[in-house]
């Protein structure tokens, strides 16, 4: 049941205009990234590579938030889920299937963006190496975490608020790892409060290997495994919360 729902969701996603338009805009933005490389005072190729991989993260998250926040709400508001939930499946099958389908679509999108980015770098003469592919993989995990954040937040609020909340979490998620440096001057109690709040936000810096990959800084397998497990745990937690809320929802 879960795979049937996931397959249909993935097809619906990759054929949607939002998805295709955002990938198109990504391709255009990648094409313009060389401009930043030219005006940069440092190594142009490295700056271009950095920009291309940052664009992959930003556009990947935009696709995840744009589609993740409307995925469940449109099912509820347009009542498309009535013909699905009237069939012999549990509500958690539906949520997990939707998330897996969304993830599959996002992975296809990330793969397309990675190929476009690497092709562009190769054509423009920048160095293309395996560490960049690994950076692309970790960016994909980041996007999947953000998809789970979007799905969960849309269960708790409206799609618009969920989109704003998701983007705030994306911004904060990249600042969380710098928190210890920022709060060392605070009192013990204040540090505790800030740390607790920060622990509710996924540390997206774990997936920002792209900055190191540009300089070919190696990533050890154990480190990679920890980062993947961290992403997987956040996804499992967020999808579980989504299921818990959706199970009680009156449709």
């Amino acid at each position: 049941m879960i795979w049937v729902i996931a397959t249909a969701t993935c097809k619906e996603l990759v054929r949607s205009r939002t998805f295709l338009v955002l990938i198109l805009i990504f391709a255009v933005a990648v094409g313009l990234s060389r401009l930043i490389g030219w005006i940069s005072s440092t190594d142009g190729d490295i700056v271009t590579t950095d920009v291309v991989f940052s664009l992959q993260s930003v556009f990947g998250v935009l696709v995840a938030v744009a589609t993740g926040t409307v995925l469940m709400q449109s099912e509820i508001q347009q009542q498309t889920l009535y013909t699905i939930l009237s069939r012999p499946l549990e509500r958690w099958h539906f949520v997990v299937g939707k998330y897996l389908g969304l993830s599959a679509g996002l992975i296809i999108g990330q793969a397309a963006m990675l190929v476009i980015g690497l092709l562009y770098l190769a054509v423009t003469g920048a160095a293309v190496h395996g560490w960049l592919v690994l950076a692309g993989l970790l960016t994909t995990v980041e996007v999947l975490v953000m998809a789970a954040v979007s799905l969960c937040s849309t269960m708790l609020s409206t799609p618009l608020l969920a989109a704003v909340l998701s983007l705030i979490i994306y911004a904060l998620g990249h600042a969380v790892h710098t928190l210890p440096e920022l709060i060392h001057h605070l009192g013990h109690g204040q540090q505790l409060v800030v740390s607790v709040i920060a622990s509710l936000i996924p540390d997206l810096g774990q997936f920002a290997y792209r900055n190191d990959a540009v300089y070919r800084t190696p990533l050890m397998p154990a480190d990679l495994a920890v980062r993947l497990a961290y992403g997987g745990l956040w996804i499992a937690l967020l999808v579980t919360v989504t299921v818990a809320v959706f199970r009680r929802r009156q449709l």
Binding site: A8, E12, S16, Q79, T80, Y82, T83
Partner: peptide, 15 residues
């Protein structure tokens, strides 16, 4: 064992 035709039949647009 149950079939349901909803009052407002909306379906996915892209399938």
């Amino acid at each position: 064992r149950l079939g349901y035709l909803p009052e407002q039949p909306f379906f996915y647009d892209n399938l």
